[in-house]
């Protein structure tokens, strides 16, 4: 008997997704979330111009990222992740 062959399935890590949809959801959420974190926020998004309808770039860019993150959560819900 090889070590671990009779291990129950729940000893497999729950920190890593196992299904395809789970991997997509986690990957997309993490990728987008990192866009809303330093260094991206402080180095890339940190500017006023170009404004969008007068609203500064940093604010609009973060709003777009936040809306995309909500989209990922809703997608995960619809896919039953």
């Amino acid at each position: 008997m090889f070590a671990g062959m009779d291990e129950p399935t729940y000893r497999r890590s729950h920190f890593l997704p196992r299904t395809r949809d789970g991997k997509i959801a986690i990957g997309a959420f993490l990728a987008l979330f990192l866009l809303a974190m330093p260094p991206v926020t402080h180095a890339v998004l940190n500017r006023i111009e170009p404004t969008v309808l007068g609203v500064p770039f940093l604010y609009v860019a973060l709003l777009a990222i936040y809306c995309s993150l909500i989209g990922v959560l809703v997608w995960a819900l619809r896919r039953g992740v």
Partner: peptide, 26 residues
């Protein structure tokens, strides 16, 4: 928003006028 851009641009970038929102704080 347009008036804030014109009059107080210091409020519209990081880490802010008092340097509060550093990467670590964020």
């Amino acid at each position: 928003w347009r008036q804030v851009v014109a009059q107080r641009p210091d409020l519209l970038t990081l880490p802010g006028p008092k340097g509060f929102f550093t990467p670590g704080m964020w």
